[in-house]
């Protein structure tokens, strides 16, 4: 078997919702990834520095409390600045406040440079499949 790929997991901004984060840690680990979980209340800098030291292939950002758009601004630019040119960026949770048109929300996050954007209530199977796909790993 090839070496495990490292991914960074965390909840961005002033957000303390911890349950989904723990579930993602568990399921992605079981799926064969080396998960580095930086937990709740993480800044963009925390994510990026963790990815640099651990040579991560992807960063999975959660935002549950509705301020995801603000917290995620400039994330891709900072990654590029830090030399993480090819890192995959996924984001999910309850990204915005209230009931907004999902396609529009998704578009906004894609424009910010995220590779994949997941709607509220996403179960882990889908992003795990996507990540393996994006990395060219067998299922």
């Amino acid at each position: 078997m090839a070496e495990k790929r490292t991914i960074i997991l965390g909840v961005i901004g002033a957000d303390v919702h911890a349950v989904g984060n723990k579930i993602l840690e568990y399921t992605f680990s079981k799926a064969g990834f080396n998960v580095v979980n930086i937990g709740v209340l993480s800044s963009q800098k925390d994510f990026i520095e963790a990815a640099i030291e651990t040579d991560a292939v992807a960063i999975l950002v959660s935002s549950l409390y509705g301020h995801g758009e603000l917290d995620c601004q400039g994330f891709r630019d900072r990654c590029i600045e830090a030399g993480l040119d090819n890192i995959l960026l996924y984001v999910g949770g309850n990204l915005v406040i209230g009931k907004q048109n999902w396609e529009e929300v998704k578009e906004r996050f894609l424009n910010m440079g995220f590779d994949r954007v997941y709607p509220p209530g996403t179960l882990p199977d889908e992003p795990i499949r996507d990540l393996k796909n994006d990395l060219g790993l067998p299922d």
Binding site: E3, T6, N34, E53, T54, D55
Partner: peptide, 8 residues
């Protein structure tokens, strides 16, 4: 520099 298995 680098965690074990991390950046080399």
């Amino acid at each position: 520099g680098g965690t074990d298995g991390g950046n080399s």
